[in-house]
């Protein structure tokens, strides 16, 4: 926090290197959120730029009352949401029971080919996460990759804490089921 304060003050006084240090420090957070929300690579590049520019422009208005990570995550999330709205992509979709049932029926038994293709579990997981609506992807990202609390995630996404918990629980339940049914339990190896 103290280091953030110094970097912010130096950035505001025109020190470009200090701002770059801030970007390097929180770049991973931005990449995680954008990667999960924006599936198109070219669009993602535009969004990275937008996020970094917005952070740079909004820096004079940032007060260290909240955590820098929460603030940057909020800017990143809102930028992604605006981008998806412009593209008319579904943002608030849900994990319906119908979807879950459909997945179960389709994948009740992994084929020999699928079993032979021992793709890394992280890639399989990424594929399954990609099928979820953006809000569910973001909740998973902020909780598991950024170690944010329910309260922080609720603040970033402007959602009630109960909704965040519910999204997390349902997303993980669906992921476990999909991966186990599609690839077999023994392949759920980290």
């Amino acid at each position: 926090m103290a280091e953030d304060r110094i970097l912010i003050e130096e950035s505001l006084s025109g020190d470009q290197e200090a701002f770059r240090s801030l970007v390097n420090r929180y770049g991973g957070l931005v990449v995680h959120i954008v990667h999960r929300m924006i599936r198109n690579a070219a669009d993602a590049e535009d969004v990275y730029q937008d996020v970094f520019l917005k952070v740079y422009q909004a820096l004079p208005r940032f007060r260290l009352e909240s955590k820098m990570s929460t603030w940057i995550a909020t800017i990143t999330y809102n930028t992604c949401v605006n981008h998806l709205r412009k593209k008319k992509e579904v943002l608030l979709g849900d994990l319906t029971e119908e979807n879950e049932e459909g997945m179960r029926l389709r994948t009740d038994c992994p084929s020999p080919v699928e079993r032979a293709e021992r793709v890394d579990i992280a890639e399989r997981l990424e594929t399954e996460i990609g099928k979820m609506p953006p809000q569910f992807r973001t909740v998973l990202t902020l909780f598991h990759l950024e170690d944010m609390t329910y309260r922080e995630i609720a603040q970033v996404m402007n959602l009630p804490e109960g909704t965040v918990k519910s999204h997390l629980f349902r997303a993980r339940k669906l992921l476990r089921r999909r991966l186990a049914e599609r690839y077999g339990e023994e392949e759920l190896v980290p």
Binding site: I121, A122, L125, H144, R172, L175, R176, A180, L188, P190
Partner: peptide, 13 residues
Amino acid sequence: EYRRLYSALANDR
């Protein structure tokens, strides 16, 4: 299974 899933979710490779 959940423990493995949590571990995979925290992996950013």
